Amino acid sequence: MAPDIEGPVLDEARNLMIRLYNKEAISSLNILRQHMFAQNKSELRSLPPTEDAFKQHVLRALYQLRWWKHAHESNPIIPSVTEFGRNVLNNCLVPITTLLPQFPTDIDVPSFCKCKSSKCQSSRCSCVKADVMCTIAFACATSADGCSREQVVEVEESESEQDF
């Protein structure tokens, strides 16, 4: 059973990560990732991790911390490494990068929206024609006021089963 790291540990780690990107007003790594993608689509390497990928990284860091914390004991009781963001594959230990699918499957959007305005109400708008909401990746969403038709997609996080 994976440890439950929800609460102060994960919140503090997330807040530190968000502060590294100098975006203290945002409270979710997924939202931060969407806004940064909308501002600079060419540098995908500069995006922060998703909430789920970040949680897996924190689990791996906590496992290492647990080893260090109990290093002075002769027979420490350390849980299985597979409970802390890793799997065994072909007798090798590999990190779990995410538990979520790579792409959302339930979003039906046009390939792009060229509206420069934040309104997107014109019948010439591809979003209006397709009768779908705009997303953060479209030009209209990066306007100063945001887009009135913007759809914020927040990925649900899986719940852990055991307390750390």
Rank of each mutant, 00 (worst) to 15 (best):
L16P: 00
M17F: 00
M17Q: 03
R19Q: 11
Y21P: 04
N22M: 05
N22H: 09
E24G: 01
E24L: 01
E24D: 06
E24C: 00
I26D: 05
I26V: 15
S27K: 15
L29I: 10
L29P: 07
N30R: 10
N30V: 05
N30M: 10
I31K: 11
I31D: 11
L32F: 09
R33G: 02
R33S: 04
R33E: 04
H35K: 15
M36E: 13
F37Q: 14
A38F: 01
Q39E: 14
Q39P: 00
N40P: 03
N40F: 08
N40A: 10
K41S: 12
K41G: 05
S42V: 09
S42N: 07
S42P: 00
S42Q: 12
S42W: 01
E43D: 15
E43S: 13
R45Y: 09
R45I: 03
L47C: 08
L47R: 06
P48W: 03
P49E: 04
T50S: 15
T50N: 05
D52M: 01
D52Y: 01
A53S: 15
F54R: 06
K55V: 00
K55Y: 02
V58E: 08
R60T: 12
R60V: 12
Y63I: 09
Q64E: 11
R66G: 12
R66Q: 14
W67R: 13
H70V: 01
H70R: 08
S74K: 13
P76I: 06
I78Q: 08
P79N: 14
V81M: 10
E83I: 02
E83V: 03
L89F: 09
N90L: 10
N91T: 01
I96V: 15
I96Q: 10
T97Y: 13
T98G: 03
L99Q: 08
L100A: 13
L100H: 06
P101Q: 03
Q102P: 01
I107G: 04
I107H: 08
D108F: 12
D108P: 02
S111Q: 13
F112L: 04
C113R: 04
